[in-house]
Simulated assay, not measured.
Amino acid sequence: MTPSACYRGRFAPTPSGPLHFGSLVAALGSYLDARAAGGQWLVRIEDIDPPRCPQGADSIILRQLETFGLEWDEKVRWQHDRHEAYQQALEQLAAQGLAYPCSCSRKQWQAYAIYPGWCRDGLSDPDKPAAWRLRSDLARRPIIWQDRLFGYQQFDPADLGDVVLKRKDNLWAYQLAVVVDDAEQGITDVVRGLDLLDNTPWQRQLQIALTLPEPRYLHLPLVVTPEGQKLSKQNLAPALAEEADDVRRQLFQALQALDQTPPAELATEPPTSQLHWAVANWSVGRLTPSEHRFSP
């Protein structure tokens, strides 16, 4: 990538618990891509789901990033402050006929692979609480983009279903919030895990409908356990250790998981030295588009 001060990347964790090794790989990949391009790297806390976000988890995440030397530009943003922006975007979509209220429960349509769109032409039960969904069949389709690692991508979001934009409990859903915030922060490049690749079609539909910029995407290979299970908080992946020796080891292993082939002697160097080497030698071309089985 040609170095450019216009590059703006971000790491946007959900504070449902401390970062684990898979989170570190995602954060490191986005950080290195931004720094190697001479750009900025931002941190956003995606805390729109309070029941999943224990108090203090955001502070732990920020401390972990600092411990690993991943310093961000600009002030940290929190999504819980962004209700008005999300509401404005939802109203804009509704005015175009691209968002509609839905009173159906998951139990009602559990026999279907995707939500059947029963409320597209009016609430099926006006007396029940309603979520808001995207009319994926009316928004731009198919969605085509070029992923920087996985290449040509084409999806018809209508085959994926009408994604929820606002929940019945009035909490905002990820798809709308991430699109609005990426645009507001001027994000040019989204670097994240492969598990989010199939979210991109809805997000690009929303970007087009809201006339927002469409960032470039780089989806990183997933880090999985030796048994093939994705490292995640839901799967009880252990939190990153924060002792100095462990930090050096885990950072070095994260560089290996990103296929950057760091020299062996770098493993005992402090984060500043490891990151200096990694930024200078970052290459998307080294990434391999397959799962990485790893035992951190």
Score class of each variant (00 low, 15 high):
91 E>P: 01
91 E>T: 04
92 Q>W: 07
92 Q>S: 13
92 Q>H: 09
93 L>F: 11
93 L>C: 05
94 A>G: 05
94 A>I: 00
94 A>E: 08
95 A>H: 03
95 A>N: 03
95 A>D: 09
95 A>G: 03
95 A>Q: 09
96 Q>T: 05
97 G>L: 14
97 G>P: 10
98 L>A: 04
98 L>M: 07
98 L>Y: 10
99 A>Y: 13
100 Y>F: 15
100 Y>C: 09
101 P>W: 08
102 C>H: 02
102 C>W: 00
102 C>N: 02
103 S>M: 13
103 S>E: 04
104 C>W: 05
104 C>F: 08
104 C>Y: 03
104 C>T: 04
105 S>R: 12
105 S>H: 05
106 R>F: 13
106 R>G: 02
108 Q>N: 05
109 W>G: 01
109 W>R: 02
111 A>D: 03
111 A>M: 10
111 A>P: 00
111 A>W: 05
111 A>F: 10
111 A>G: 03
112 Y>Q: 09
112 Y>N: 04
113 A>Q: 11
114 I>W: 15
114 I>G: 05
115 Y>P: 02
115 Y>T: 01
115 Y>N: 04
116 P>R: 03
116 P>I: 04
116 P>L: 14
117 G>V: 03
117 G>H: 13
118 W>E: 13
118 W>M: 09
119 C>M: 11
119 C>P: 00
120 R>K: 14
121 D>C: 09
121 D>G: 03
122 G>M: 11
122 G>A: 11
122 G>Q: 10
122 G>C: 09
122 G>W: 07
123 L>T: 00
123 L>Q: 02
124 S>I: 06
124 S>L: 14
124 S>N: 06
124 S>R: 08
126 P>W: 09
127 D>Q: 08
127 D>N: 04
127 D>E: 12
128 K>F: 10
128 K>G: 13
128 K>V: 14
129 P>K: 05
129 P>T: 07
129 P>H: 08
129 P>L: 15
132 W>M: 08
132 W>G: 02
133 R>Y: 14
134 L>P: 01
135 R>G: 01
136 S>R: 04
138 L>E: 04
138 L>R: 14
138 L>D: 02
138 L>P: 01
139 A>M: 11
139 A>C: 12
140 R>V: 13
140 R>T: 06
141 R>Y: 03
143 I>E: 07
143 I>Q: 08
144 I>H: 13
145 W>L: 14
147 D>C: 11
149 L>R: 08
150 F>A: 10
150 F>I: 07
150 F>R: 03
150 F>N: 00
152 Y>W: 08
153 Q>Y: 10
153 Q>P: 02
153 Q>D: 12
154 Q>G: 01
155 F>W: 15
155 F>Y: 15
155 F>E: 11
155 F>D: 13
156 D>C: 09
157 P>V: 10
158 A>G: 08
158 A>R: 12
158 A>W: 12
159 D>K: 01
160 L>W: 07
160 L>R: 00
160 L>A: 07
161 G>K: 02
161 G>S: 08
161 G>M: 11
162 D>Y: 09
162 D>C: 12
163 V>I: 15
163 V>A: 12
163 V>Q: 02
164 V>K: 05
164 V>P: 01
164 V>G: 06
164 V>C: 15
164 V>D: 04
164 V>A: 12
166 K>E: 00
166 K>F: 11
166 K>I: 02
166 K>W: 09
166 K>Y: 08
167 R>T: 03
167 R>E: 15
167 R>I: 10
167 R>Y: 15
